[in-house]
Every structure is written in C-alpha cells, then in structure tokens.
Amino acid sequence: MWEQLFEMIFKPDFLFSVIRITSPILFAALAAVVAEKAGVTNIGLEGIMSITALFGTLISYWTQSWAVGVLGALIVGIALALLLGFFALKLKTDIILGGIALNMIGGGGTIFLLYLFTGLRGNTGELTTPEMLIPQVNIPLLKDIPVVGEILSGHSLLTYIAFFMVFLTWLMLYKTSLGLNIRAVGENQNAADSVGVSVVRIKYIALGISGALAGLGGAYMSMYYSRSWNSGMIAGRGFIALAAQAMGQGEPTGSMWSSLLFGLANALKNKMEGMQGMSSYLVASIPYVVTVLGLVIYAVATIRRVKKTRRAQNAMTAPAGEEK
C-alpha cells in the first residue's frame, strides 16, 4: 500500500498538482486576508468566484481574448465586492447575510445569467475555443533544471500571479500608508476615525481589493483549471479559503502556507483514491482531517509559547515580589 502511494507521490507531477490545486484557494485566501484586515468579513468569496468565473468565460468568449476575460473577471469581482460593501456599509445590512446572499446568487443566479446571455443552462463547454484559455508559461532556464523545473515551470500565468500576490499583499499591508490605514481600521476603527482616516472609504477599498483577488481566482477556475464554466464548479473552494485565512492567522504568508497545506492534502487525496481497498468516503475526509491536525499543532505550539513567556515573566516579577 505504502509502496503504491510513494510511487505516485515521489514524482514531480505530484508537487506540480499541489501548486495547481493551491492557486485558486490562494487567491481567495488573500482576498479574505485583505478584507479581514480592514475589519470586514467577506464570506461571499464562493459566490464572487462563481460569478466571476462565469463572466471571465463569457467576456473571453465575446472578445475571443483570454486577457480581456481575466480583466473582466477582475472588474466584476471588484463590482460585486463593492456591492456587498454598499449593502453592508451604506444600507447597514449585516455583512454576513450580504455574503450569504452573494453565495446564493453564485449558485442560482449564475444559471439565470448564463441563460440570459447564451441560452445555455448548465455549462459553457461548447463555447470554448483555445483563445479563451489562460496560457501556461514555460519559464526559460528554470524549465531545463531537472525535477525543480518540472514542478515549477509550465503553470498557468495566473498561478505565478497568485504567488506574487502574496508578496504584493504583504507589501501593500505593511509598507504602504494604505496598508497602515487598512490595519488601523481593522484594529480599532474609532481610533482611526479620530485621526481623520475615512473608515468607510478604507473598507470599500479593502473590499474592492478582496473582490479583485477573488475574481482572479474565479478566472483561474473557469479559464484554466476547467476549460469551461459549469454551475457548482467552485465546489467550496471559497469557503476553504476562509479556513486558510483563519489558519494563517490572517497574514498573507501564513495564509499561503495553509493554502498549500490544503493543496497538499487534496493532491494526496486524489492519489489515494486510486489505491487498493481505500474507501472513497474515508479518503474524501483527508483534507479536513489535515486541517484539524494543522489547527491542533498550531494550538499546541501557541500554548507552549504563551506558557514560556508567562514563565519568563514570572521569573522576572518573582524576585521583585520577594523584596516587599
């Protein structure tokens, strides 16, 4: 059994698939990070991804250009997130309910939109042409290195953008005044307000960025990962991203690692499906078991660290107490 598994895992192909599975989750996780940093919870990611995936496909179909399609998905993503902001910030609806509404539109509304625009109702398979698909990129030099090249080269353009976005998001959050404002609003919006930061404006901006990132995730799903859009294709990736954000402590790099962990667990699951005597129900639970394990390990580490600092503090304060 192990032999069979190792045979499939110790292949460049396996790590390649980890990265491929991680990319859409990473986009959405970064979207969750930015929104959460500004103190707005965007649980509509699943819906935004579903709708932008559809629009990415439709726009690229109309223009026969994948680049315009990706741009369209990005803009639609921003528009949807701002719509959520409009309801939550302006009309004062509960942002969680707003997010749920977006997810529901992503489920049923997309079919209606698809029908409205194309007359199709289930999937866009028959519309696909090669011009509509995001190209794969072979990186010169890197691609010639054995193993490493096979793992890292040849991914979709958006995959590289996703990992670059981790850096950009970190840069934006920690090295720009916008990032400072976003964090300030998220930490304590009254304090931010008192020094003249427009809280609502910052929240809109953070939601907009969040929508743009989710839009790229949607485009990845329908214009690269699958060759077409179909209803239900996001299949919970928007929610997994929320978990990845939480597991990553709301930080860009942390969320990247937790997204990669989800990617790894899923890739492992896909390989184990093909093994002798493995129940597919049991195997399907692997990503979730890994998540729980990850959280346990993280919690244990945190508790240890807290205890250690407390002990150190006690050691420092104890002599002072004796003197009295």
């Binding site: 239900g232 294709m233 890739a267 499906e273 093909g274």
Partner: peptide, 24 residues
C-alpha cells in the same frame, strides 16, 4: 482504475483524478 469525485459539479477535482490515472 476507479476513482470517485464525491461531487457531480467539481470539474477541477475530476480533472485531477483523471490526470493521475493517465500519468501514474
């Protein structure tokens, strides 16, 4: 080689499964 997607709409996972069948 039999593998189940555990979903009727998750195209991407079905693709991963089939790629593993073909490549592995």
């Amino acid at each position: 080689d039999t593998r189940y997607v555990n979903s009727y709409t998750d195209t991407a996972t079905a693709k991963e499964l089939a790629l593993s069948m073909i490549n592995d």
